[in-house]
Computed example of a mutant assay.
Amino acid sequence: MAVRGRAVETLPKLMRSPRKDSASSTVTRTPALPSLRRAFSLYDQINLIDNVPDDQLRFQRYTETGFTVNGVNYEGSLLCVGNLVTSWGPRKFSEITPQSLSIFQIIRPIPEILILGCGRYIEPVDPELRRFIRSTGMKLEALDSRNAASTYNILNEEGRIVAAALLPYGVSS
């Protein structure tokens, strides 16, 4: 009990003593280091979106009826593999079949992931279509078309082998 009493008495003195010493001290202090916060700001120094090589596909806009890719407006559905873009037949989600994605049976190297842009809303993917995509060696990610285009941009900028099959954003089931 006596030890605790001394600790309680000493604590206020310890708390006050640095304040007194710092005000009356004549010790020379070293200058403060500059803040590194600004030096490591990714927003100020690196902008991946604007520094994409010209030969890489980049979705820049989406509309109800199509997409803008590398400054070119495309109407309708698109199929992108790596840095190649082409029109794609399906106009609504129910038209996406293994036959509409049969190009992935012959394309090499096979993309590691297929990003399926379902239109305005994410749709459940038919088990037969999932089996077909899995049989090609790809993984499947079904998203709304807006997020699918963004995901494609990010993965493609990372240098990954990626494919996207996108319905226009205005499409709904």
Score class of each variant (00 low, 15 high):
116 L>D: 02
44 D>C: 08
139 K>W: 06
31 P>T: 14
54 D>L: 11
40 F>K: 06
50 D>Q: 15
81 V>Y: 11
117 G>I: 07
36 L>V: 09
79 L>V: 04
111 P>K: 07
57 L>I: 02
143 L>P: 01
80 C>M: 03
141 E>G: 09
90 P>D: 10
87 S>V: 08
70 N>A: 05
83 N>E: 11
76 G>R: 05
114 L>S: 12
147 N>L: 14
56 Q>S: 07
86 T>K: 14
77 S>Y: 03
67 F>W: 10
40 F>H: 10
110 I>E: 05
44 D>K: 13
49 I>Q: 13
71 G>M: 07
80 C>P: 00
120 R>W: 01
57 L>H: 00
144 D>W: 03
124 P>G: 09
131 R>L: 02
150 S>I: 00
84 L>A: 12
69 V>A: 12
123 E>G: 00
38 R>G: 04
42 L>N: 14
90 P>F: 09
64 E>Y: 05
122 I>A: 06
120 R>S: 04
36 L>G: 14
35 S>C: 08
50 D>R: 15
94 S>V: 05
113 I>V: 14
109 P>T: 07
115 I>F: 07
110 I>M: 15
33 L>Y: 10
99 Q>W: 04
81 V>R: 09
91 R>S: 13
31 P>N: 06
71 G>E: 08
131 R>Q: 11
101 L>I: 04
122 I>R: 15
118 C>L: 05
126 D>A: 03
103 I>H: 05
49 I>F: 11
146 R>E: 13
110 I>V: 15
140 L>V: 01
34 P>V: 03
37 R>A: 12
53 P>K: 10
104 F>H: 13
98 P>K: 09
125 V>M: 02
48 L>H: 14
83 N>T: 12
54 D>M: 03
134 R>M: 07
111 P>H: 11
112 E>N: 10
74 Y>I: 00
123 E>R: 14
104 F>W: 13
78 L>Q: 09
97 T>R: 05
148 A>E: 05
108 R>T: 15
144 D>M: 01
92 K>Y: 06
130 R>S: 05
27 V>W: 12
41 S>C: 10
69 V>S: 12
44 D>M: 11
